[in-house]
């Protein structure tokens, strides 16, 4: 046992496990609140408990001991830790956030406006600096999707402008 080195917490991993754990536990409690009969719990209860046990087994992996300099080999044995720069992470964050907003509000805003705005923003964040190309592409692609998908699905898209 080497006592040297600090313990590094993978906060993101911890957050993921917290989300999964909460979801599984809430599901188990909700199922038990619905009915305690076997017909209801036959799979959900044992699986939830198994999942929670597995989660507890994984939990310690969020706390990794940073090996002192010169002990790189040890570190390699652990599952790889993600390594983006803060700027790269921010880019992913912006695209993800915009995508979530788009998914939740595209019906209210209208598909045309919402999708066009997302495309312009997304293409910009992903690295296109030529605004003319960006806007032209976004407009054409939006129209193509709306008319293309619109022609083959049995319900209308909510639109604001087109």
């Amino acid at each position: 046992m080497q006592k040297t080195g600090k313990i590094k917490v993978q906060w993101g991993h911890l957050a993921l496990l917290a989300v999964l754990g909460t979801a599984i536990l809430a599901y188990l409690l909700d199922a038990r609140a619905t009915s305690l009969r076997t017909n209801n719990l036959i799979l959900v209860q044992p699986m939830s408990i198994l999942a929670l046990i597995l989660l507890l087994m994984v939990l310690p992996q969020c706390f990794q001991r940073v090996p002192p300099a010169g002990a790189e080999e040890d570190h390699a044995a652990l599952p790889a830790t993600p390594k983006e720069t803060p700027i790269e992470l921010a880019k992913i964050g912006v695209v993800t956030g915009a995508f979530i907003l788009l998914a939740f509000f595209m019906e209210q805003i209208g598909f045309d406006i919402a999708v066009f705005s997302f495309l312009v923003l997304g293409i910009f964040v992903c690295g296109e600096r030529n605004w003319i190309a960006n806007i032209a592409f976004s407009a054409v692609f939006t129209a193509l999707l709306i008319y293309g998908y619109g022609a083959i699905i049995p319900f209308p898209f909510p639109l604001a402008v087109l």
Binding site: A151, I153, P154, F155
Partner: peptide, 8 residues
């Protein structure tokens, strides 16, 4: 099925 085809 689709509105357009149906109309057709």
């Amino acid at each position: 099925m689709t509105s357009k085809l149906n109309r057709r």
